[in-house]
Design a protein around this nucleic acid. Structure first.
Lengths: 199, 199
DNA sequence: CCTACCGATCGGTAGG
DNA sequence: CCTACCGATCGGTAGG
């Protein structure tokens, strides 16, 4: 087993722990213990704990990006692309919910240039969805409204999956994605019901 | 200023820090510094760092509970109650996004009996929404489907607000809640559009 | 509420 | 990759 494999093992173990007990709640020795190593031995492969977090966040971000960017820029109606982007996004989350969690939450522990890079990645990623939704509004496929709010509503709803999804659950990833798509695109109301009591 | 006020100040400062840099990423001395105290001085008012977290989580949980439970059990159609519950939930988040964040995320750092209590609170709270949605389905106000999934989709979407809402933003809490309600109840589609390319 | 301290643990390094 | 260690910081306590 060469050094590259070891580094990958370190990232795998660290990602698991960061997702479960937070970056700050995980010590270098916790990570080492998962690989039956001494704490200091990790530094033959890494240069800092924060660098490990960065590498995991970067990889997770790339997976999200790769799963939706080409669909966003591709052919098809805005609504069709959005549906497929949701499948891609949900696919990344269900494939490795803990990796997704690190990208979604633990990036906050990054500082300086790394932090700025993550913020850029996140903005760009949200932009893929926002642009497609805006396009759908312009082309009257989607009811006009606040595209930024709709985007955040959608992505937050999908990201929640990472909190409860168990691999091998009753719902397959694409079934889950399509159920979410159904909720998002046509809502849950059967017929127009009573308005709420005003305040 | 009596001890009770000091305890409240400690919880306020701790809640802010826990939300911003995680429970594990906040030291007792960080909290003390916010109040211009020495680290050890906090222990005149608290018995442990974890107890402070518990008190914050408990209070936040109670606020969520108080904002929706009576609506859930009250009168009105299921759809009407659900709309008002969403207003209550969003109201708690917008009133103090950091307090909400501690309840939504930092409870994971609680152990033993406190952890079990939080899990119970969270289950019960989710149940208020799930039951109203189920009731709406039974009464054909809401399109039949997976009530548990719809509940998680909705609550995750709303909870995302805590991540970006700034007090004094362009959208007032009730406007924001109603915009979310609109997205959730009737979706974002204008007309039935093309199905996605199948896999 | 402060000073001064406890043992434990932190991220990281030197030298082999 | 280990042993052994560095200074800093951790949550918490004693005694005033």
């Amino acid at each position: 087993m060469d050094g590259h494999q070891r580094l990958h093992q370190i990232e795998q173990a660290a990602g698991r722990l960061f997702a479960e007990r937070t970056y700050a709640g995980t010590s270098v020795r916790d990570i080492a213990r998962e690989l039956d190593l001494q704490g200091g031995s990790l530094y033959a492969h890494i240069s800092s704990k924060e660098e490990v977090l960065w590498r995991i966040v970067e990889r997770a971000g790339r997976e999200f990006h790769d799963a939706v960017s080409s669909i966003a820029a591709g052919t098809g109606s805005a609504v069709d692309r959005l549906h497929r982007m949701i499948r891609g996004h949900v696919g990344v989350i269900t494939t490795d919910p803990r990796l997704a969690t690190v990208f979604l939450h633990e990036w906050k522990h990054l500082e300086g240039g790394w932090r700025e890079k993550v913020l850029g990645m996140r903005d760009a990623y949200e932009g893929y969805f926002r642009d497609v939704i805006s396009e759908g509004m312009d082309e009257s496929e989607i009811a006009s409204g606040d595209a930024a709010l709709s985007t955040r509503f959608l992505l937050s709803a999908l990201n929640g999956i990472a909190l409860w999804y168990q691999t091998g659950g009753q719902l397959a990833p694409d079934e889950l994605a399509d159920a979410c798509w159904s909720l998002f695109q046509s809502g849950m109301l059967l017929s127009s019901a009573s308005a709420p009591n005003g305040h």
